[in-house]
Each structure stands twice: as structure tokens, then as C-alpha cells.
């Protein structure tokens, strides 16, 4: 399993009712169902991923996240998770608000555009590409990239409390350097959020 998913798993209470926005092949939901008795649904738009979820017995709903979460009631989930998807949606600010309307808590992970290698590439006059951002600028699903500072500023503006933060490198290690300079050394950011 992807190491960021391992980290997230530790943040989710056993027997939670969970919604996974952009659930991919359903790995996280399946893992949590097996290890923590978590129930819930994954939202996914890619046909091949929907097929994989169905094959592994994950409840998957073929939804376009950009259409909003109108089909879900307020506070109907314990936790709403969105891994490596925030940067690919039309309006990340609305998506965050929707997450925390539908779920009591939200968990978000995204690639940090403020990582020093990104900054270096930009300083050299090029759009950054890396292990966590492998796409060319002209053919990428990642249309709303942000830095640690940007994201935390948005949370403050939206009245969202950050309950927990983890910033890791591409190998999902979190050493002293990362703790001291998260915005510069972190490649992937993980947040646990709640509405204030």
C-alpha cells in the first residue's frame, strides 16, 4: 500500500463511517474495512478504477467530484478522505467546504509545490516535475497546486481547524529536517481537519 495511505490509516478511528473522494482502486477503503471495520463508500470517476473497486468488493460510486457532494447529507460520515486529489479538482476551496459539511472530520493529502526542488526548477525557469509531480505542464490533472503556507492560509480563511499535520518526503519519511522546514523539505502534505 502507498505509504501515505498507511499514515492516514492511523488517523482513522475503528468502525468509522468513511467517504473516500477519488478512491482510486479502493485500496484504502479495503484496507480499513479489513483492519479497522471501517464502512463507507469511495467516489471515483475513472472507469478502470471503478471496475477494480467492484472486483475487490469496495462500495464505489462513479461520481464526478466537480459536481459537488450534493447527494450526501450534512455530517453523514465520520470522516471524509481525499488523497492526492485536491490539486486536481475544479475548486479546491469548495471541495474542502463540502468535505467538512458531509464529514465530521476531513483528511487531505496533496503534493507540496513549495518543495525546494520545485522552487529550484522554477528559479531555472521551468515548471517543476518530480516523482510526486510526474506530469508535463501541458498534460496534467494537477491544475491547482499549492504550498504548505498557501493551504494553511486557505484553511484559516475557511474557518477550518488543522487537527494534525504530517509532512513527508517522497519515501514518506519524516525526519528532523522535515519537522523544522516542512514547507521546504516536504514533498507530500497530510492534514487532518475539522470545521471550527
Amino acid at each position: 500500500m502507498r505509504p501515505d495511505l498507511e499514515l492516514i490509516s492511523d488517523w482513522i478511528e475503528p468502525d468509522s463511517r468513511m467517504l473516500d473522494l477519488g478512491c482510486g482502486d479502493g485500496t484504502l477503503l479495503r484496507h480499513l474495512a479489513e483492519t479497522r471495520g471501517v464502512t463507507g463508500y469511495g467516489l471515483e470517476i475513472d472507469p478502470a478504477n471503478v471496475e477494480r473497486c467492484v472486483a475487490s468488493g469496495v462500495n464505489v460510486l462513479q461520481y464526478d467530484l466537480n459536481r459537488g457532494l450534493g447527494d450526501f447529507r450534512d455530517a453523514s460520515f465520520d470522516v471524509v478522505v481525499m488523497t492526492q486529489t485536491l490539486q486536481a479538482v475544479d475548486q479546491p476551496n469548495l471541495q474542502l467546504e463540502e468535505m467538512l459539511r458531509v464529514g465530521r472530520e476531513g483528511i487531505v493529502t496533496f503534493p507540496n509545490f513549495g518543495h525546494y526542488r520545485c522552487r529550484l526548477q522554477l528559479a531555472m525557469g521551468r515548471m517543476p516535475m518530480s516523482r510526486v509531480l510526474p506530469n508535463t505542464w501541458y498534460d496534467t490533472p494537477n491544475i491547482h497546486l499549492c504550498t504548505v503556507t498557501d493551504f494553511e492560509e486557505l484553511c484559516a480563511k475557511l474557518g477550518i481547524t488543522i487537527l494534525q499535520r504530517a509532512v513527508v518526503d517522497h519515501a514518506h519519511r519524516s525526519g528532523l529536517g522535515l519537522r523544522l522546514l516542512p514547507g521546504l523539505l516536504g514533498e507530500i502534505c497530510l492534514y487532518r481537519l475539522e470545521r471550527r
Binding site: Y41, C53, V58, N59, V60, L61, Q62, Y63, F72, R73
Partner: peptide, 14 residues
Amino acid sequence: VRALIDAGKAVSYA
């Protein structure tokens, strides 16, 4: 699908 979710049922939707 929405009714099934509200009722807490196991459902997949394609």
C-alpha cells in the same frame, strides 16, 4: 443510490 446511502446500505454505482 442516494436513498441507499442514507439508509446505510452497501451499494456500488456505475
